[in-house]
Simulated scan of single mutants.
Amino acid sequence: MNLLNDFLLIVLSAIVLQNAIFTRGFGASKGSLMRTSSQKILQFGCTLTVVATLSSLLAWPVQLVLRDRLEAGVQLAARYAATLASICIVYTAVWLLTKYIFPGVHYDIRNMLSSASFNSATLGSLLIAFSGSYGLVQTVGFALGSGIGYTLAILLLCEGRRRIALSDVPRAFRGMPVMLLYAGILSLAIYGLIGHQLPT
């Protein structure tokens, strides 16, 4: 029961308090912020969540071995390389699995699989979990929560963009500038809710 509580607590923390976009700025590219279709956002978010979760399962044992056997400077570079290698392995496995076993799914996600796999939200959430020395359950929970939080944040930004499009925005702020202001205000609101210092 204690393990389940830890898992749920870290998932909720990653979704709300340590949201990839609003508190860390991961994955906040123009392509992500300007998506319009809720269905495409959900497909992208599910793909990112699956890749991040599977990569955390694959990379955690490697991180555990690296933590005990290498000195600090080499350990950091090896951690980045091992995390990126695990993402590449999961990307290849998902690509091949969907292409040959689930071709319908592959057709839907083939264009977004690479951008979801090599998104800074995927890599960043894994590196944060590994630098925090989380256990396996906490690492998987953090990766899962980061993917879900990222998806919810993009959906929230999409809805905000729809509402902003209905209002009279000055010409200089139309498009990306108003979206960055909107995301910044939401980030400040979450930081006010959390009530702690900026992440270092």
Rank of each mutant, 00 (worst) to 15 (best):
L193W: 09
M1N: 15
F130T: 08
S133Q: 13
S115D: 02
F142E: 07
I87H: 01
L113E: 09
A14I: 07
I89V: 15
L96T: 06
W95Q: 08
E159S: 14
C88S: 13
L17K: 15
L144K: 09
V51C: 04
G160K: 00
Y107F: 11
L155Q: 05
N111Y: 12
G25C: 07
I154C: 04
L180G: 07
Y91I: 04
T23K: 11
S131Y: 12
S167T: 13
N111C: 14
R174H: 08
A153Q: 03
I190L: 15
Y80F: 15
F7S: 06
H106D: 15
P61L: 05
L4W: 09
D68C: 13
V16H: 09
A129N: 09
N19Q: 12
F118Q: 10
S125W: 01
R162I: 01
K30I: 02
E159Q: 13
F44D: 00
F22I: 11
L113N: 11
I87C: 06
V51W: 01
I190R: 04
F22K: 12
L96D: 02
I148N: 05
Y182I: 04
L17H: 10
I128M: 05
A172Y: 07
R67G: 15
R174G: 07
I128W: 01
I15L: 02
Q138N: 13
V140C: 08
R24S: 08
T200K: 10
R174I: 02
I10Y: 04
S117N: 04
A14Y: 05
R162Y: 01
M34A: 07
T47D: 00
R161C: 00
N119D: 04
G192P: 04
A129R: 11
L155W: 03
A189N: 07
L9D: 09
V94R: 08
T139I: 08
L42C: 09
I109T: 05
L8Y: 08
S55M: 06
V169N: 03
F7M: 09
A189Y: 02
E71H: 15
S29E: 07
R79T: 14
P170D: 10
Y100H: 14
R24E: 03
P177R: 00
G25S: 07
H106W: 14
T53F: 04
A59Y: 10
E71G: 15
S32D: 01
T83R: 02
A165G: 11
V50C: 15
R174E: 07
Q197V: 13
L8Q: 10
M1K: 14
V90S: 05
L144Y: 06
R171G: 01
V16P: 04
L33D: 00
L33R: 00
R174A: 10
V169F: 02
L97N: 02
V140E: 00
A116F: 01
S29K: 04
A28G: 11
A72K: 13
Y91S: 05
